[in-house]
Every structure is written in structure tokens, then in C-alpha cells.
Nucleic acid binder design. Structure first.
Lengths: 346, 346
DNA sequence: CTGAAAGCGCTTACAG
DNA sequence: CTGAAAGCGCTTACAG
């Protein structure tokens, strides 16, 4: 039932070679009339070449894999969207994979993707171990790792300067007069989290303040985790007057927890998030946060990936160094000057 | 460099046939020792069969295409997540496609997916025309359409009873004493929207109320669209005391618009959304909305798709009729009794 | 200007 | 218990 190149050849009374040439626009040396006739027939019967057969020969599948922790997190959703847009424009399909921050799932996906002969893999490094990137390097797949920021792992990495983002967020709070600044980390196994934590500590240090380990609690990058973490902070003998949540989802959770305890944001407790998801603008109060322009990140990632795919035979391109994807502080209303009425120890 | 089945055969001193049998666990008639030896070698060299070559023969790619309007809309993000989860569990990869509600993009994606020999396609019907489903039927691809609810188009459809959802939302507002109930539709070209509108009108009628066309304005299913639409409603000579927005994103936009004009939600204006996205709980005020259990929808969709794939030779399965995916009203705080202090005409 | 033939990496009758 | 051969639907030297 389904047409193949052979059928077209037969219908047009030419060889499959000729049809193939027309399909690939290598028509330099084919009679104009022949080309036209073949094109017409293809149109007429609605023939589409089987791209699987094609990729067996060319070795290019025009398909890439995208491994994110969870595409229902708006930050990853927006990243996936941008990546898919660029892929579509360039004729690449993208296979979506959710790792749930699990190295095991990550590795399983990478295996499946490689078996499917994808041309490249983009993945959000969870930084839990280098197994995933090692596997991809070992298999000679083109790949780009997003957000891994470890010096030395310089293959196909688009780094995001999370440390700087953490510094910005914390400094903002310091500038508002806060003395006890908590943070809701994301589980220190994750690179993302570690670097934001570095930025946090660095900002405190720069301001001559000491970091109090009791003020550092762990969430899970999800709303519920932020809520629980904030409750811990609130239960402290000397709760913080401001907290920096390592992503917006947890910041939203933190806001809920604060409100639920009868306090106000930002009058009683200031909160800064991280990611600048679209919802940040619409919640109450609008969230002060850190922005990493997602579209710019997607651009950098896809550029690097395409270059890596091109020269897969040689060495992958080096990391691209934060070009145009500097974190920015987005000031809205969830953080304000420290309220001196509230008793606090420095 | 890359291992093929031939290499394994050579290394083990057997034929490719034998290796292939081991790969496919058809080892009934192969010497135990041979099987073991081959398995070891495969393990040792880390050989993974090229699934592209395999699918050329079997005609199964174990890949499905998912066409959504926009995966950064949380409702679709959650749906995509659930579908990907099930796909992963069943050994299927999912290719993500964003149609932006455009029939043209939809058709282009379907073409590309078919050329890639995907086993099936899931797509959220925008109801703008039947071209997309017609194309899939014409090409004999297994597919499932989500949300299309037109009687007669009974091939591979998981219907969602949007009309009932619209009825529920509107009736809730009526029950709260509201007399002028506006609605923010999604552009009447979309099936989604039409049916919610039917539910809205039906509820009014059932309550013996007349529907006022001035109270029906169009958004675009995005936050900004909801905001603009609400501004229109607010600018009316007799603005509504309650509005039903056809999705949560537009409801959020509407809430912003109401607040920006100095009114309160729900004291001055009640708002009900649709979709029950995760954020609804966290915004201020928490959003009253309609829930269609996403996981149940994803389950129904995948079951139907797998059945369609199985019997692609025969006829597709019929639509599955709302089983377990009935809409529910989720009452939170964005809608309340009509405020009698505010002058209003019935 | 056009075609016959080999081959991509597998699976699957068929044969022994 | 095992293998030689054909074939999936294409592309690509090679030859004319």
C-alpha cells in the first residue's frame, strides 16, 4: 500500500537512482522534463521518502534527544519549547526524556537514544556523577550539557553561571538590610544547587557576614519541597528575615508556607527565587528572582550541538562561555527592606 | 569504530543469524554455551543493536509523535509528562511537537513524523479543521486525537467532555448568586472553546437566564489574552460580577487585570478557570477551576494508541467515552457569593 | 543524461 | 543446533 521509491521509479519508467536524485535535488544532470515528470508523480501520489531508510545510509537521523529532569517544571518546559522551536526550524525532531533527576534513568535514556541513532543529545546535567557525559563521550555521540560548570569537563558544555545568580540574589537581600538570610537549597548533590550555594556564601562573605548552617535547608526543586523547607526555617528559634530559594517553584512553596503561618511576604519575610518562570509575575506578591534568558540558552545550546554534530569525527567544540546568558536580577515585590519592628539578632 | 552485528558474529565465530537470535531472545534452539558466549561478548564490547536498522525490517520504530499546541502551557506540559512516562515504561520514545495552534504546522509535523516512521501520533486537536486527522487516516498511521468531541469523527478519539466542564463552572457561579456572568473564550475556532461555550450557555439556560453576547469575549488561551479580555469586560457599561475563563492561564491574566483596576477577587469579581494546573493552588486567591485528571487522560490516550498500533491493519478502535475522565469542579477561593453592595442590573 | 549494483545493519523464512 | 541468502527502502560510487 505504502509507496516506495521503487514504485515511483516504475510509475515514471526510470531507475530508482534517478528518482533518488530528484528527491535529493541533485538534478544538475537530469533532463528537465524527467525531473518535472517525477516531481509531478511524487506530488500526485503523495509519496514521502522513508527517512529511516535514508538515515541508515547517511548516518544522520535529524533527530536529537533532550533529557530534562522534569518537563512540567516551567523552566524546563520553556527551555524544551525553545529547543524544539529551533530544532523544527532546522529540520530536527526532538525526543523528550524526563530523568526525574535520576542518574539511572538518564543512562537508560542515553542508551535508548544512541540505539535510535539520534544525531545528538542535550541534557540538563544533574551533576550527580559524570557517568552520563562519560557514556556519551565513550560512544562518540555529539552532545551538549546544560549548566554543568565544572572546570575540566569542557566537552560540549553550555555553562550557566549559577554562582553569579546566587551571588546576585543574596546581595540584593543584603542590600535591603537583611542580617539573617536563609536559603532553600536543592539537595547538595546537584551541581545547580552547589553553585547557587557558592554564590550565596560568597555574597555573605563579601559583605563581611557569616553563613549560619542552620539557615541552609534543603528542598527538592518542587513546590512542596519549598513549602516544607520554609516551615523548617520558620520553626527556628531565630528565623531568617529573608530567604533565597534556589528556584521559583520552591520560592512559591515558601511563600505559601509563610502565608500559612500568618506572616506576610515581603513585610515580614522577604523571598527571592531563581529561574524567572512566567508565573513569577502573576503571583502575589510578584516574585523577585534571577533570570537566565531561556531563549539565549537554547540558542547557545543548539549552536553548540549543531557544531558538535558537524564535526563529530573530530573533537567536540569547547564550552561556550556564558556568552549573552548572564544572570540578571529581576526586582519585583517579594523582597523588601528588613522590617526593624521585628526583633532579630544579627 | 562502532560495532555492528557482523563484528559480534566474527568475534564469536558464529553467523549473524545466531547473534540476531540472541539479541531477540529467540534462544530456544541455540546451545546454552553459545548463547552465553555471545551475551558475554556483547556485554564486553558494549554493543547495542542499531534500532533504526531493526525498524526498517519490523516496521516498528517504537517511537510516537506528540503534537501539542504549546508545551510550555502547564496543562500540556503535564499531559506530555504523563504520556512520556507511560511511553518510557512501554519502551516508546516520544517526539515532541509544538503546533502553536496552527493547522499548517500541525500538518508539517504529521508529514515529518510519518516520514520518520513513527508508530503512532497523539495530538491535541485544535478543531480548526479536520485536515490533520484526515491526513493521518489517509496515511494509515495509528493516532489518537485528544479532546475532539464531534460525533461522527469516531476514529481514535479520547473525548474530553469540555461542555460538561463549562456547565459545571458556570453553574457554580450561578449558584453563588451571580446574575451577570461573563466568559473569556478562546477564539471560537477551537473545539475546546466551542464546547466550553456550549456548557456555559447551557448552564445559563438551565437556570432560566439569558446569555448576553457582550459578556462573551475572546482570549487566546494565554495569560496576556486573558488580561486583555478582562479589560474589555471591565470596560463594559455593566461589567459582569463573575467570569468564567476557558483556561487557567487566561484566568490568571484576568485576575491580574482585575487587581490592576483596583478591584478585588473574589469580593468584587469572582473568577473561575479551567484545567486545574498546579499553579492554581498557589496564586492569590487560589483558583476555583475545572479539573480533567491529566494522568487519567494520558492513560486513556496511551491505551487507545497502543491498541490502534497493534491493529493498524484493521480498523482503529472507537473513541473511548469519557471513562474515568469526567470533569470536576475544584472549589477554592477565587469565586464567592455575589456582593450585593455592588450595583448591578439583572 | 541515466542506470545496475553494492551496501547501510539488521531480521526472517528456508534449509540443513 | 546453526547458517547462507534475501530483503527492508533508500543513497552512492562507478560506468556508460
Amino acid at each position: 500500500m505504502k509507496m516506495t521509491i521503487k514504485d515511483i521509479a516504475r510509475l515514471c519508467d526510470v531507475s530508482v537512482t534517478t528518482v533518488s536524485r530528484v528527491l535529493n535535488n541533485k538534478t544538475d544532470s537530469i533532463g528537465r522534463e524527467t525531473v518535472a515528470r517525477i516531481r509531478e508523480k511524487i506530488e500526485e501520489v503523495g509519496y514521502r521518502p522513508n527517512s529511516v531508510a535514508r538515515s541508515m545510509i547517511t548516518g544522520q537521523s535529524h533527530t536529537i534527544g533532550l533529557v530534562v529532569p522534569d518537563n512540567s517544571n516551567p523552566f524546563f518546559a520553556e527551555l524544551a519549547r525553545s529547543i524544539e522551536d529551533i530544532g523544527y526550524a532546522e529540520g530536527y525532531s526532538v525526543i523528550l526524556c524526563n530523568s526525574d533527576y535520576s542518574v539511572k534513568k538518564e543512562l537508560a535514556y542515553v542508551d535508548a537514544l544512541i540505539a535510535r541513532q539520534i544525531d545528538g543529545i542535550i541534557y540538563i546535567s544533574t551533576g550527580q556523577s559524570g557517568d552520563t557525559s562519560r557514556k556519551m563521550q565513550g560512544n562518540g555521540v555529539a552532545f551538549v550539557e546544560v549548566g554543568h560548570n565544572i572546570v575540566g569537563s569542557s566537552f560540549g558544555v553550555v555553562s550557566i553561571d549559577y554562582a553569579k545568580g546566587g551571588f546576585l540574589a543574596t546581595s540584593h537581600l543584603i542590600g535591603l538590610g537583611h542580617k539573617r538570610i536563609g536559603c532553600i537549597a536543592g539537595g547538595i548533590v546537584y551541581t545547580h544547587s552547589e553553585q547557587r550555594l557558592d554564590g550565596y556564601k560568597n555574597a555573605l562573605e563579601t559583605a563581611g557576614m557569616e553563613s549560619d548552617p542552620r539557615l541552609i535547608v534543603s528542598g527538592d526543586f518542587r513546590l512542596e519541597g519549598g513549602e516544607r523547607a520554609m516551615q523548617e526555617l520558620l520553626a527556628l528559634k531565630e528565623p531568617p528575615s529573608a530567604v533565597f530559594a534556589f528556584n521559583d517553584m520552591m520560592a512559591l512553596g515558601a511563600i505559601r508556607a509563610v502565608k500559612a503561618s500568618g506572616f506576610r511576604v515581603p513585610e515580614d519575610i522577604s523571598i527571592v527565587g531563581y529561574d524567572n518562570i512566567g508565573f513569577g509575575r502573576v503571583i502575589d506578591p510578584p516574585l523577585t528572582t534571577i533570570d537566565h534568558p531561556v531563549a539565549a540558552v537554547a540558542d547557545a545550546v543548539m549552536n553548540l550541538l549543531f557544531r558538535n554534530i558537524m564535526k563529530k569525527s573530530g573533537l567536540p567544540e569547547n564550552r561556550s562561555e556564558f556568552q549573552g546568558i548572564e544572570p540578571r536580577l529581576i526586582i519585583r515585590e517579594s523582597a523588601t527592606r528588613r522590617n526593624p519592628d521585628i526583633e532579630q539578632e544579627a
